[in-house]
Design a protein around this nucleic acid. Structure first.
Lengths: 248, 248
DNA sequence: CGAGCGGTTGAGGCATGTCAAGAGTTGTGG
DNA sequence: CCACAACTCTTGACATGCCTCAACCGCTCG
């Protein structure tokens, strides 16, 4: 554990309000590790021994069944993931792998649960975080069941722009094949959808998204705060992709 | 509040371990109401003023967007619903309506949050419940994204049977159109799927499900504990339908 | 008895997945 | 520094899953 990491962790919603002694205890029992890109950190079904905190890099949470696989979310610094399994001491429901070289803090689940009982502010933070994760995935599921793929893509583009303060252009935070899987479609289908969306106010050039007609895009996406936010439900990510970066 | 209801509420995972004084306080600030069938209890977007506990009847949680609508889960006694919104003091993401005449306890969200801070055991129960709800809907989403509709139906039938101790026959807990929506398909498509499944070890006659060849059904459904359970993730329901009843 | 509703069935169409091939990009090792 | 391998992305052709619309049956309940 590098001492200079601590303040950054401390800034997280989850740890911000807790008692300093408890914070030190929690982190004192933790480990920091560096992982290369493409490493499987967690295999679904494994016991949840650690809460993970991404300090650097990026981690994909994904699910497998039979031969199929789908992206559930991507976690970027500084965020935690798989809180629910740690709290419950239950097997992970999702797998996790690094997308880039990453630095990750591992907090023993047992320590998490102990401190939860002894620090009320921490307990409040944990339950808020978890409720946020829950609401985040509820939104996600609503999108999957109520919108078709074109509408999901349009909503995603519009939401990203809104999160960036209405930016008319920005860079995708992940590669398209991953975005496709997150949105519940194939890469081929996403590719074709992007083409189709050019007639609806948004153009994509490589990794760059350019909103050419916001009103037209909104007419298609029909953004809804109960699906797309904005709403600080997930201070760290429950079931989302990271925000895009504004275009240089 | 009828005094005879209290022990039943007290039995819920959520309230079982808490301090008696705190329990009495919480319920003392609550209301009980009877609602006719088909009444909209909650409209998505409303502020979450109350945690709801279903004592009698049945409640459907559903989501709307544009003109479309889908069932997210059905809650039967004795279970709570929409814990996350109450904890967060955030707008409901789902609507709720009674499927039958129902008796429901309304616990003020503010009281919930106060007692959470003062009763550690209750806090532990709440966070466990919430983590269970989260895991439940993660399973649900995995099913939606990884399986096609026929596989989802087959898995559902198999899971119900397993929950009933391997019963070869049972009665559906909800009408088919609702089941279809829950599974993310149209009633027509479910109807056709049922027909197709007769060649795969399960027959449906009206509301009665009869498993004729468990192995064959399992070969199609490929049940997976990380999607289907069994796992006491949701002591009350996060995102499921109630269990079926064994056939008379 | 008639209206309304859930369920089923058929016909047809659109949305989405699958398979295959090729262009462009990136990363690596010689 | 270049060549190659691996990978993403795109495009086309095709198959199919799923939805939509419409009609009809049977049941329930006024």
């Amino acid at each position: 554990m590098r001492p200079e990491d601590l303040p950054e962790v401390r800034q997280l919603q989850l740890f911000r309000s807790m008692d300093t002694d408890k914070f030190d205890e929690l982190l004192g029992r933790s480990y920091v590790q560096n992982f290369p890109a493409g490493l499987e950190l967690i295999r679904q079904g494994d016991p949840a021994d650690f809460l993970h905190v991404v300090m650097d890099g990026a981690v994909e949470l994904y699910a497998k069944w039979g031969g199929r696989e789908c992206t559930m979310s991507v976690v970027r610094p500084v965020s935690t993931f798989i809180l629910a399994a740690s709290i419950r001491n239950a097997p992970y429901l999702m797998s996790a792998r690094t997308l880039e070289r990453s630095r990750i803090i591992l907090i023993p689940s047992a320590a998490l649960r102990e401190v939860f009982r002894r620090d009320t502010e921490f307990a409040v933070s944990v339950v808020n975080e978890l409720a946020g994760c829950y609401r985040s995935i509820v939104r996600n599921t609503k999108g999957l069941k109520l919108r078709n793929s074109r509408e999901r893509v349009a909503s995603y583009f519009l939401r990203q722009s809104t999160l960036l303060g209405g930016a008319p252009s920005y860079v995708l935070p992940v590669e398209k094949r991953l975005l496709a899987s997150y949105l519940g479609m194939t890469p081929e289908n996403l590719s074709r959808t992007l083409r189709a969306l050019e007639a609806h106010g948004v153009k994509v050039d490589g990794m760059r998204v350019i909103i050419t007609d916001r009103a037209r895009l909104a007419a298609l996406a029909q953004p809804d705060t109960l699906i797309d936010g904005p709403d600080p439900d997930a201070s760290t990510n429950g079931s989302t992709l990271p925000e895009a970066r504004a275009r240089a």
